[in-house]
Write a protein that binds this DNA or RNA. Sequence first.
DNA 1: TGCCATTTGTTCGTATGTATT
DNA 2: AAATACATACGAACAAATGGC
Lengths: 239, 239
Amino acid sequence: MDEPGDGVTRWRRVADQIRAAIGDGSVADRLPAEGVMAERFGVNRHTVRRAIAALAADGLVRAERGRGTFVTGPAPRLVYEVGPRTRFSENVLSQARRPGGRLIGSDRVGADAEIAALLNCPSGLELFRIESLHDADGLPLSVATSWFPAARFPGIVGNFAETGSITEALLREGVADYRRRETRITAERLSSSDATHLAAAPDGLVLVARAVDVDLRGRPIQVLRTRFHAERMELVFRH
Amino acid sequence: MDEPGDGVTRWRRVADQIRAAIGDGSVADRLPAEGVMAERFGVNRHTVRRAIAALAADGLVRAERGRGTFVTGPAPRLVYEVGPRTRFSENVLSQARRPGGRLIGSDRVGADAEIAALLNCPSGLELFRIESLHDADGLPLSVATSWFPAARFPGIVGNFAETGSITEALLREGVADYRRRETRITAERLSSSDATHLAAAPDGLVLVARAVDVDLRGRPIQVLRTRFHAERMELVFRH
DNA sequence: TGCCATTTGTTCGTATGTATT
DNA sequence: AAATACATACGAACAAATGGC
């Protein structure tokens, strides 16, 4: 009766609304008083306080007794440019930050219908699946799942494990250059394992980018499913 | 990490994980038994049952006594192609669906620093701000906020109110054609007002696209902040 | 100085919802 | 099905800090 039954608590929803108000600029520097927000949101003042506490824990606001609660400003997002020649490390380096990558896991799988279509290969073809984590200055930014034809790139897993870079790993397999054909974007909630790897709150959001990379002759090399931490990044597409 | 103190209930998190597993295809047809999932997620079977009930209420799965729980399939997303000549109505028509648009609200505002930089105009310049809702076959897909220089497009609000199309509204103001320069993508939770307009659950997700459109001489025409319903759409960028 | 309104911080109590056993 | 433990939410006070008058 009290909860609408959607599994999200009231203080959480209040926190999200305040966060959104800060994000879109409708609250610039100081929040309304707790009592005012309590009335406006139709909740108890305790509930507002808990929401503020959550935002303060994220460093988004700072409460000062007797004065008010002030916006300290959202953390700036890393700008990640996506285009035909997207390279994670170049992107991060261009923002004067140090890129990193490491192997989380890998296995051999058969191509399902969707991936086979994207790779332009027969369904069931043997693939390497690589789970990787990518960061800037040690802050995790994205988790990616990549699929490679196993026959064409037999050493890809070891190469990536050693270099931490897909580009380097492909170079060792004889791929001098590759291009991105298209990128498809959706948004999802974090899965629990991704939350662990990204060192993020379990209810965080990710931008999911599904992409296909092709070699210079247009043959598909890899299928990617990258989950970008939504609060730490912004994807930019130039047209 | 998993403590029940982050504002999301356990059954909700379990439901989200099952939903994600269905979404990325790792669960194709039938869910594991409740007891198996309970152990896998580290929760009680009651909690799994509640999660399944929530998914069943959304029409995502169907539980059959004595047989199991089966995936009925997620609703297909509308594919929305973003490029230099993105037009909402053309995009929707290409999927054999009927586009719609209507004015939600409008007002006059002064350009803040960020928008002034994007529009390449002095800060404080008078702008029209337009809130609009866009749908396909009556299903709301996106809410957009647009800023236009008021002096250059004095009739833009009325034009959009009459036509429901930005392209048409600009045409009446003498803009025969325009191009998109860049698009920046982030993900957020729905604000309460956007949830109302999109007829969506209050805890839904949106893809937020910030873009600048320029005329054929390269002069900025409008700044856009579009919130796409994340479960109903997928954004595609061809490179 | 003092007074007072405003605002955040704290402590009771009570009721309801959630999750497990 | 019932009992238990814990988290959430509300209500009413009071304390402490701030700033204007």
